[in-house]
Amino acid sequence: MPPTSKQIRYTPLAADFKAEEFPFYWLARLHGVYTLEMERALKTVGADIPTFRILMILKQHGVLSISEITLHAVSKLPTITKTVYRLRDDGLVATSYAAHDGRVVEVSLTDAGLALIERMQLATNDIFQRAFAGLTDNQIERLNATLREMLGNLGGL
């Protein structure tokens, strides 16, 4: 489906393009500030963003293969593999070979990983409270739906 004239205005090719009207400008700024805030908060409990991301994915989904974690984390397999083995060495996750395929490494949370999740959640709660201040449930649901649709448009679903 060809873009409408309104959509063309929001692309960098438009003659009247303004960065402040480009959604990816705001997404990039938001991501940058979010990353800085998260790094600062997680450091207080001895964690980092990759640890937070992987442990939270496992908390929600349970036992996953490294490949499945990679899909949820939207990251590269070597990066996730290296991080998972660091987390295993730190006692935060356990790894085992899948019963259905001995080549597949499955990852699960340990009690230490669950305990760190609780500390990370407490350390980062203020960030989420501030980020969503003044937004209604309906606004957040619409934002999620829009972002999900855009991700699908880019083949990320």
Rank of each mutant, 00 (worst) to 15 (best):
V93L: 04
R103N: 14
N153R: 14
L36A: 15
Q139Y: 01
W26S: 11
P78Q: 06
T11E: 02
T51N: 02
L92P: 06
E37L: 14
H61I: 01
T79W: 00
A99D: 14
A98S: 15
L92Q: 07
N144D: 12
S108D: 09
L42V: 12
R40K: 15
R119C: 02
S67G: 10
R142S: 11
K43H: 11
D111H: 08
L122E: 15
L147N: 05
S108C: 00
G152N: 14
V45C: 13
I66L: 10
K76S: 09
L92I: 06
V107W: 02
R130M: 09
R29W: 03
G46L: 05
E118H: 09
T146K: 10
N125S: 13
Q60C: 05
L71K: 11
V45Q: 09
I80S: 00
L151Q: 10
W26T: 07
I69H: 06
L13M: 12
E20I: 11
T81D: 05
E141S: 10
P3G: 03
G62M: 07
K43G: 05
H31Y: 06
A98E: 10
L147W: 02
G152P: 01
P23E: 02
L109E: 08
P12Q: 08
T4F: 00
V63T: 15
M120L: 10
V107P: 07
F17D: 08
F24A: 06
M150W: 12
